[in-house]
Every structure is written in C-alpha cells, then in structure tokens.
Design a protein around this nucleic acid. Structure first.
Lengths: 315, 315
DNA sequence: TCGTCTAATGCATTTATAGGATTGAATCGA
DNA sequence: TCGATTCAATCCTATAAATGCATTAGACGA
C-alpha cells in the first residue's frame, strides 16, 4: 500500500475516471491505471467495477474511500506540521534554569516572548546547577543556564553575577562604593546555604582572604535573608541579581583585594544536538534581553569588572 | 514521504538504533539509514541528532513521531478493514424489493440473518418492479427481486407467484381444487390496481380467454381486498403470496385453460458488477430460504405447475 | 592504544515505476 | 446501423529509485 496509490484511488473516485484523475495527480493515464490495479491486487478486492469504460465504486471501494481520505489528510497534516516546525513558526523549547534565574530574568522575558510567538511552546525546567548540566547532556533541555567553564557545551555569555552585601542604611559601611570582605570579619552575616553558587564564591573568597565569617543565619531563601537584613538583624550576603530597591537597606558590591567576587553566567546548549531555528531564535532573543537588562547591572558597575571569559559560541 | 520511511522512522525511535530498527522492518542497515535520511531531506529537518554513534530524537522528531505513529496506525486499520471486507465478515448489502416481497419473504429472513451475521449491514430499498430494475442498472442496489425475462441481469429463480381467487367459504366454487377464470365471468371481483404484476397477469389471462371481468372494486392494498372478501363483498383476485389462513374465506388457484396464471420470481444482480463474497453468501442464504419456505406454496401445489424458466445463474 | 560497535557511504544490482504507443471495447452521433 | 471517438488496459522501453553487500569513519570501552 502506498500513499500514491491511495491518492490515485481517491482521485479516480472523485473525478469519475482514470484519465481525468491522472491529470489531477500529475500522472499519465497508464500509470494511474496500474496504481489502482496494484492497490486492488494488494487489498485483494476490486475497488471499482469496470462498467464498460466507466469506473464505478464497488461496495468495498465505497467503504474504503473515506478511510483512504482520512489517511491522506493525516499525511498532509504531517507535512504541514513539518513545514511549520521547519519555518520556526511553531515548536517546543525546553529551557533549564535555577530558581533565581527564573525569577529574575526568565519570568519577565517569557511573558513578553510568548505574546509575540504564540505558536512556540516553552517548557521551563527548574533545577540546580549540577542538575541542569546533566539534563543538558541527556538532551532533556535544549538550553540551560550553566556557569562558565564547562567545555562540553557551547554557550553565550549573558552577564556577570557578583556577590553583594546588603546593609542597613544606617550602617557605617553602607556609604561605600564597594566593600572589601575583610571589613565584614566581625559583622553578623545572613547567608544562603551552600547549594547557592554565590555562597560558594563567598566562602572561597573568605578562605583566600583568611577570614572567618560570623554567620548568624544560613537560609535557603534569598528573600528571607533580605527580609532579616531589612529588619536590621545583620548584613545579608547575596548574589547581585536580587531585585531592588528595598526600603531601609543598601546593596554594596563585595570585593576581595580589589577583585570582584562572582562569575559570568552563560546560556548553554549541546553543540552535538541540532538546534532548530525556533530554538536559535529564542536563544538570541533571550541573550539580547539578558545582556541589555540583566539584574543588578546598576550595582555591578560600582565594583571592578569581572574578567570576561571568551564567548565560545559555536552556534 | 512514504509509509516505509515513516515505519523506519518509528522503528528507529523505538529500537534506539538504525541497525536494530532495520531488523524489525526487514531491511538492511544501510537501507534504513538512507530511508531516514530521505525522510529528513524531504521534511527539511533532522529527526535525529547523531550523538556519537547513537540516534536521539530532536525536538522536531519528538513532535512528529506521534503523528507518524497515528498515520501508520491508520494505514494498518485500512489494511485490516480491507481484509475484513475481503473475507466477508463485514460489509454492506443493498437489496431492492417490492413491498409485498418485503412483507412476505424478506422481513422474516432478515431478522434471522442479522442475528447470525452481525457485521453485515443490510439496507432494504423499497420500490416498484420497474424502479428496482433501474436501481439495479445504476448500481444502487446489489440485489433485487426482478421478474424473469430481463436478460441484462443474472439471477436465481426463487418460486412461482400465481394469481389466486379468494372466495367466501359458502361460495359454490370454493370447494374446487382450482378454478378456471371463465367461471368468474359474472362474479363481482375485488382486484388490485394495475401497478401490481398479479393484476396485469390476470388482465392478460382474461383477454386471452375473452372474458370481461366484473370488477366491483380496484384497490392498491391487498389487505383491503382481502378484508372485503372476508366480508362477503366479492371474490378477491390476489397473488399467491398473501398470508393465510384467514377466517371465512378460501383461496383457490386460478387457471386459464388448465394453465396456471403467474410468473416465477427471481433474485437478480448485475453481472457486470463484482459481487463481493458477503453479498454472494447473503444471496445464497436468501435463495435457499425462499425456495424452501416461499409464500403460498401449499396453494400453488393445487394448480398445474408454471413453466419454469432456465436459471441463468452466471454468478 | 587497540578492538569493537554503529551509522554512513560507494557501488553494483535489482526492482518498479513512469511515459509513449497501442489495443480493445464501449459509447456517441450521424 | 455504421464509423468516430473516448476511455481503460496492455505492451514495451527507459529512467529512477531502492536495496544489499562491502567498506569506511567515527565513537566507545577495555
């Protein structure tokens, strides 16, 4: 059974003759004749009665005709779906991100993007940094926020994330343009737990600076830390992408011997996987958006710039 | 796009590899490889990412895979439907019949037949004799009750229909084994109108016998005629297939010079049309039923048998 | 680093499918 | 009633496609 045979079958039934049908399906008359014969032979039944030189559907033909139509329609729908996918008008995108990324960058961007591209279905997968790398490697997501330094993936640099301190306005250190971590030695600190990259960077910086931070609270929720800082309970240590302004507190970038603490963020993908046009378009739009309006950009300008890694965009 | 390509596509996705898929679809590995490449080329997109020596579905492939499955399932359903039609387990039958035929023969038979063949859909088309011939010629019905004598159709003889008189039991002539129409010359008669074949046969017989029948009533309803006969209003002239017994009246076959009046009935079909197995089976069952239990058979035995035409069964 | 496994490619062969010409039969018009 | 026409089927040949075998290229594991 062949789609061409079915098409010819339907055409003969519709046009009432092999010759006319042949024209409709861009075939010669003998070819159409043979196709219908081949179909009849394969199905083991006559689809048409040959009444003189006319073709009339048999009962079986009448029964199978609508089914053949459905099959052809389904095939056409498949082709059209493929064309839509190819042109990037439609398709699915799976993007992995950490909760802070989702909150600060992705949420706002997605709302805008979906309005302009209603055919695109965007699935956001929430996971931690290590989990995102694994998902990207397994092909579960097309794109993911991954820190710089993993050579397995291509990526586009987005923006730097730096560690900042959030101090009460009344605090003496809050007027500084930026703040060396040595000055935090005896201050009571409110920090995130070790699953946060910013906490790891902060710890590493303290270690190199030979400082033992006075941790008053370790939390898994940035907003909790921030709220306590507002209440004057201590100095919050957070990544620069928390949203400001907040009342009664001031953010100040941290430095370690005149060097900012943090890393650049990257939107990465697996270069071994074919990246569909609609995914590439989405990626470019997201990169553009993030680079223009990244969280904490006002703050970051106050500290020495982080070393910018090479952008290893291999597309 | 080709069903084979789609089948290979699905097989690769299911079996996770070209080589294994090739075995499943009875192809060599290179053939399967080229099929999927051809499909990808035609759709203008990669369906699989080649990760090392593995094949992993792209986003597009994942999108199109269920559609391909549906298409293949639809094709399989078409094949299975064709097989069912071919084996005669299912299908449609259109049979044309006159109202008396439907009432006396078909109704009872259909009830029985449908119980034993639930897959068969039987459509009964009610029409007059001339209408049935036209419908048969146009292919609107597969089978029809048609009088003998039409060479265009093949047919199987069913049973003779003879013209009978229905007399009040008290009538002197009601004791006869059969009755010559000459004896009806002066009796008040209740006859059917000229659209009934039996009426035409009766008229023809009267003409050859040089008799002017004394028609008291001409009706289009056999039961009305019969009812009036029961009421003693006259002698009813009817075809032999009316159902007996009736109270107070006796049926007597009519003869014209020792010759029965009537014709054989035939179940006919268009020999130019392919007769599907399930239609042929239905036909045989109906012929068998009609020949064994035809209406008026007890009555007909009392008159000289009608000349039996050749059974021109050309199948 | 070597061996193995997998998908892709080259090549020769087979297959089948197409079109053109022709035939045979049925329909139409004179 | 007899051509003329029309249409489906058939024959034949050429072209295109698909297949299988052998081989290659590349990745994965020991």
């Amino acid at each position: 059974m062949d789609l061409h045979q079915l098409r010819t079958f339907v055409a003969i039934a519709d046009n009432g003759g092999v010759a006319r049908a042949a024209v409709r399906v861009n075939l010669s008359q003998p070819a159409a004749s043979r196709q219908i014969q081949g179909l009849e032979a394969e199905l083991g039944m006559l689809l048409f009665d040959r009444i003189g030189r006319r073709m009339r559907l048999t009962a079986e033909g009448e029964d199978l005709l609508p089914r053949a139509r459905r099959l052809l329609a389904e095939a056409q729908s498949l082709r059209e779906r493929a064309r839509a996918l190819q042109s990037g008008q439609t398709g699915q995108i799976k993007i992995g991100a950490t909760p802070p990324m989702i909150e600060t960058v992705l949420a706002g961007f997605l709302a805008k993007y979906r309005r302009h591209h209603p055919g695109i279905e965007i699935a956001v997968v929430e996971d931690g940094g290590a989990g995102l790398i694994a998902r990207l490697a397994r092909g579960e997501v097309h794109l993911a926020y991954v820190p710089v330094g993993d050579a397995r993936f291509s990526g586009r640099l987005l923006y730097p994330i730096q560690v900042i301190a959030v101090l009460p306005q009344a605090h003496a250190l809050s007027r500084a343009r930026c703040l060396d971590i040595a000055k935090l030695a005896d201050e009571p600190l409110l920090v995130l737990n070790r699953s946060f990259a910013s906490r790891q960077w902060f710890d590493a910086a303290c270690q190199t600076a030979n400082i033992k931070p006075n941790v008053r609270l370790e939390s898994s929720a940035p907003n909790a830390v921030l709220g306590l800082a507002e209440a004057g309970y201590g100095i919050a240590i957070l990544p620069s992408m928390v949203r400001f302004p907040r009342r009664g507190v001031r953010p100040v970038p941290l430095v370690n011997r005149h060097t900012s603490i943090g890393k650049w963020t990257r939107l990465a993908w697996d270069p071994q996987c074919f990246l569909a046009p609609h995914v590439a378009a989405f990626r470019e739009a997201l990169v553009d958006h993030a680079q223009r309006a990244y969280p904490g950009r006002a703050l970051i300008g106050r500290a020495p710039p982080l070393a910018r890694p090479a952008d290893d965009d291999a597309s």
